[in-house]
Amino acid sequence: MNTLKIGLALVAITALAACEDAQFTKNGPDKTVDRGIDRKHLSQLEAGIWVDPNGCDHWIIDDGVEGYLSARLDKYGKPVCSGVAPPTQTVGDFKKGSTRIIGDPI
């Protein structure tokens, strides 16, 4: 029984240790920071476009560890529905988001 308790305690300590790097702002967690192993800012990652079932665009980034999705909006805050792809399809090299270096040609 003691071995089981020690094992469970080690698992709990290890799980809590992963929370140590969380970056918070006054409004909660900072969601602009990539928490994967590469530690790049989201502005350094390459986004693709996913078209929702209604035909509107969403920015999408997948660096293999985490994924991000955000509605693509015009300067007035309205959804962009460009028709760049059929509904539920994606365009762009969003799965290699973590490999792009600023200054690289797109």
Rank of each mutant, 00 (worst) to 15 (best):
L8N: 11
G55R: 05
A85I: 01
I102P: 09
I106V: 12
E20G: 11
P105E: 09
A15R: 08
G48S: 09
R35P: 09
P79I: 00
D57K: 04
L16D: 07
L73C: 05
S98W: 07
A22P: 04
I101T: 13
D38Y: 11
A18N: 08
D38S: 09
G97N: 00
L69A: 10
H41R: 13
V80I: 14
D34I: 11
W59Q: 05
D52K: 00
V33G: 00
I106T: 08
A71D: 11
L69Q: 12
P87N: 02
H41P: 09
W50K: 02
D57V: 03
D34M: 10
R72W: 06
T25Q: 01
K75F: 10
H58I: 01
T32R: 08
K95Q: 10
F24S: 08
C81R: 00
G77H: 03
S70H: 14
C56M: 05
Q23G: 06
A15E: 06
N54F: 11
D74V: 04
T90P: 01
C81F: 01
A15Q: 09
A47H: 05
K26A: 09
W50S: 01
A17N: 13
L42D: 06
G67V: 07
A17H: 07
T25V: 06
K78P: 00
N27C: 07
V65P: 00
G97T: 05
L10N: 14
G103R: 00
P53A: 13
T3R: 15
I49G: 02
D38Q: 08
Y76P: 00
W50L: 04
G92Q: 07
M1N: 12
R72P: 00
D63L: 06
C19F: 14
G36L: 08
A85P: 01
V51S: 02
T88K: 10
V51L: 04
D74P: 00
S43W: 14
D63E: 06
I106M: 12
P29G: 06
D62E: 05
A18R: 10
L69M: 12
C19Y: 13
F24M: 12
N2Q: 15
T3G: 14
I13T: 11
L16F: 14
D34H: 10
Q44P: 03
L69S: 10
G83M: 03
I102N: 07
L16I: 11
I61F: 07
D62F: 07
A15C: 12
L42H: 11
K5F: 15
L45Q: 12
C81N: 00
T99S: 13
N2R: 15
F24D: 06
P53M: 03
N27M: 10
D74C: 05
A71N: 08
R39V: 06
Y76C: 00
C19S: 14
F24N: 08
G55H: 03
D63Y: 04
C81Q: 00
G97P: 02
L16N: 11
V80H: 01
H41T: 13
T90A: 02
D62H: 05
S82L: 01
V33S: 04
